[in-house]
Structures are given as C-alpha cells and as structure tokens.
C-alpha cells in the first residue's frame, strides 16, 4: 500500500489549470499554476493542503484515547492546538477530533493502526484542505461566507457554511502573516475550490501551487 498513489479530491478541477505537478505524501499536487504566483499569493492565494495525512475520531471516549496515544487534545470545544512536531489537533464541537500530520508526519498512520477503544469511533476523512493567504482574503471571506471572520482568533475554530457547502475553518499565524485553513468534504471540494479561485481572481489572486 505504500506504493499506491493517493488521488487529491481537487485533481479533476485542477488538472486543466495546472502547469507543473509534483508528489507530496504520495499524492499528486500542483507545483505551479502559472507565472505570477507570488502576486496571487500576496493578494488572495488559494493554496492546496489536501495532501497532508489526516485522521478523524469521535465519541465520548475519544479524548482519553487520543491522550493515551500521546496526542494532547484542546480543552475548549471548537478550538485547536499544535503539537511540538507540528501535528494539528482540532476539536470539532464537543467530542470529535481532526488530527492532521505536519508534512512527513506519521502520527495519523499510527493512530489508524490502533484498534479503537470503548466509545471511540474512527472517522475516515477525504478532505479538500485549502490554505488562504493574502491581503484580500478578508474580502474574499466576506463575499463567500455569512460568518464574521474578524471575530475568529486562534485557538478558536468554526464550522460554518461557505458558498453553500459545510466547512471547518481556523486562522493560523505564519511567517507571511495570518493564514486561513479550510477543510470540507472532498466530494464538495472541487466546487469549493473552483468557486474560491474565481472569487480570488476578481481580487487579484487565484490558485497557487506548493512550489510557488
């Protein structure tokens, strides 16, 4: 199974627009879409993080089970934390967790190999995961979502509806400034990506590759 290529939920919609491809975590990812990626990223870059490894788990026993595996869980509902190795642990609501490996991480593989404990229900996920960067992202969010993102500050996260599909969102600090991470069901992901790329295009931004 280590050799099997994973498909990105965004592959089909990105293929017509991609210039160069690469592989991350055994998934094909667009390396570059075009020539002006730096400008797009600075205005409203729609980046793709679907390739990161992810696992989900829920249930009354989920927090204790994760803790027993050395994974800290956030104390507050609808919040997140990052472990020292960069693993993202998001608490969705009261008793559901999304764990996302840092690039190259192996936590989620180890997690899914464990038999679930009592009142622990594994949640396989196939997320379209996006990363939004740039000065126009607040405007992009204003055009696509009725939630007031100016009230969202780490470590809070929000589950809401964006352009008609359910998304989980949070903001992170990065070297280039605040970054918005979005996750949605992969079967809605193509539509979400195309729509956000179109809106970003109106704001001087657009799709950006991983090697931009």
């Amino acid at each position: 199974m280590n050799a099997v290529l994973r498909i990105s939920p965004l592959f089909d919609v990105q293929a017509p627009l991609a210039r160069d491809w690469t592989t991350r975590e055994r998934m094909q990812v667009v390396a570059r879409f075009g020539a002006d990626e730096a400008a797009r990223r600075a205005n409203a870059g729609i980046g793709d993080r679907s390739f990161l490894q992810r696992a989900g788990v829920k249930g009354a026993g989920a927090a204790a089970w994760l803790n027993a595996q050395g994974i800290d869980t956030p104390a507050q509902p609808n919040s997140f934390l990052q472990l020292a190795d960069g693993t993202l642990v998001a608490r969705l609501g009261l008793t559901e967790y999304l764990i996302e490996d840092a690039p190259g991480g192996t936590r989620t593989a180890a997690l899914m190999a464990q038999p679930p404990g009592e009142r622990v229900y594994p949640v396989p996920r196939f997320d379209a995961a996006l990363e939004l960067t740039g000065t126009q992202i607040p405007e992009l969010l204003r055009q696509t979502c009725a939630f007031d993102f100016s009230t969202l500050a780490a470590p809070a996260l929000v589950m809401t509806s964006m352009v008609g599909v359910g998304v989980t969102a949070l903001t992170l600090d990065s070297a280039e400034g605040p970054v918005v991470r979005l996750w949605c069901d992969g079967t809605w992901g193509g539509y979400l990506w195309l729509t956000l790329v179109e809106v970003a295009g109106d704001l001087g931004g657009g799709a950006v590759g991983v090697e931009a």
Binding site: I7, F11, D12, W188, G190, Y191, T195, E198, V199
Partner: peptide
C-alpha cells in the same frame, strides 16, 4: 450575485469525463 450552485462530484469524475 454570482449565483452559487453547489455541485457534488465523485472522486472518479475525471475518469468518467
């Protein structure tokens, strides 16, 4: 407005196309 019409697609969509 833009007229958002959410569309759901199977992971095999590209294969079908």
């Amino acid at each position: 407005g833009r007229g958002f019409s959410p569309q759901r697609q199977s992971p095999l969509h590209g294969r079908h196309a």
